[in-house]
Nucleic acid binder design. Sequence first.
DNA 1: GCCAACGTTGGC
DNA 2: GCCAACGTTGGC
Length: 135
Amino acid sequence: MNYWLMKTEPTAYSWDQLLRDRKTNWDGVRNYQARNNMKAMEKGDGVLIYHSIVGKEVVGLAEVSRTYFPEPNCDNPQWVAVEISAKSSLKKTVKLDDIKSNPILIEIALLKQSRLSVMPITHEEYEEIIRMSEN
DNA sequence: GCCAACGTTGGC
DNA sequence: GCCAACGTTGGC
């Protein structure tokens, strides 16, 4: 089982919307590195959902419910989507500022590669963010 | 709104 | 294959 962090701009597609939809096809990724990360996802992998631009915080917990498939309605078969299912809202959102000031999270890809929208995180990083959300 | 950090494109 | 120019992301 692997762990991931996926970014979304809440003005485009929010965590609340994912809760209402229960699950969604995560598509529109047009970056090779992010695409390759999506291809590496396995069913049941843990996903943290992060709101970029507005909020700048980790807001919810989801899981991969379908591994990658060619993006629907896309001419170019190289781009893929995965299906993500909402699991639960974090009791307390975890702010980017708090991630930055946590020494356990100093190496997290969110900070190292700020532009990447789909990134792997370690089990330790995943657990630490969940722990922070429970305080 | 600015700009740093990347990624992509295209001329050579 | 190099690299300058340009585009995009996302924090500030």
